[in-house]
Write a protein that binds this DNA or RNA. Structure first.
Lengths: 189, 189
DNA sequence: TTACAAAACTAACACTTGTTAGTTTTGTTT
DNA sequence: AAACAAAACTAACAAGTGTTAGTTTTGTAA
């Protein structure tokens, strides 16, 4: 059973508030007020506050997992794979700026689905690590500690949700290109 | 009047808990329990929960401000300035892994000192932006959107506190060197 | 040993939290 | 107009929140 329209509205409102103050600091009364109803009315549509967080984070995490699966099985070079992952992150982040905040900052407040989330994240990181290591073996990527490359890329990609909405008239395609250049080719002449 | 030893212990304990769950999800009873005392006893040493957060964030932010002031007035190339900033972030982050979490994730819960914090952060970002722009004009840095460079560097540097403690026997000097290479020269051969 | 301050304690406060139960309103279909 | 479900409401709960007041314990200096 997929969520009703009203439930989706509640989840979206919750995500917006979670981005501003974090899951723990947002009360059910805050969410209700933003929707111009009373807190108790929310429970005609949802089961718990936790369910809101869970839906926001898990569906996003699964989007990333799906994207990674496509990239890693593609028959392209390691560098091309990394470029595709940059595009994946820009795409998902620009379409889910609120939800990405929860994914990054509130995952530790997951209860029932914490283990599942952690597995998805670990798998994602290991796939990315493999791509980088293969790239080094292939001589596509410089011979530097792969952990540093992994860390640096992932840090930037995970912060996109903060920056994208700050730039009003952002050309997503141009931005993706620029970011790929900076991340892969560096900034030095 | 500088904080007493016991007050420093409370702040440190608080910072550790804030890193795990965030400011809002940590109660005074949590902090007290971690110190094997009762919550009310904390108030013999501190004035409020807010004071804990404020001390953690503001003193760190001022460290960065001090570091930036030294870098920007140094008579070195733009690239050298960026290298110094990488070293500054690695140094502060590795010595304050708990506190850095609050700086990154809980600044919005500051009350009296929110405006001051925002000013420090804005000034820091503008100084970094200036260094990057000068580097582009100097032909030291490739001609790409400086906002993308700023964003990419800062995202990575701000996430150091997550990664550094995960690597147990990390050679800080080597790591600083590797990170500078990856951020400035890129990863492509 | 007495005196005193530092630092712990117990008890309680006013308020906020997520959530439930039961009821009324709203809107649509017969 | 009658019937029914969807979605709002009021009222309340048990538990947890930061903090205060007043008291007792602990450790140290006279």
């Amino acid at each position: 059973m997929k969520p009703s329209q009203r439930k989706i509205e509640i989840i979206t409102t919750a995500a917006q508030l979670f981005k501003e103050k974090g899951y723990s600091a947002v009360t059910m009364r805050d969410i209700a007020k933003a929707m111009h109803i009373k807190a108790a009315s929310l429970y005609n549509h949802i089961n718990s506050k936790q369910e809101l967080l869970s839906h926001i984070i898990i569906s996003l995490a699964e989007d990333f997992t799906t994207g990674m699966k496509e990239v890693k099985t593609a028959e392209i070079s390691s560098i091309e794979k990394l470029k595709k992952l940059v595009a994946l992150h820009v795409s998902i982040s620009s379409n889910n700026t609120y939800e990405m905040a929860s994914l990054n900052n509130d995952w530790m407040h997951l209860e029932a689905e914490l283990d599942y989330y952690l597995k998805l994240r670990k798998d994602y990181e290991e796939n990315l690590r493999k791509i980088i290591k293969t790239g080094i073996q292939n001589n596509e990527i410089i011979d530097v500690n792969p952990e540093v490359v992994l860390f640096s890329m992932l840090s930037t990609l995970r912060s996109l949700y903060i920056w994208i909405p700050k730039k009003e008239d952002l050309d997503i395609q141009q931005f993706t290109q620029d970011l790929s250049n900076v991340l892969l080719k560096g900034i030095t002449k």
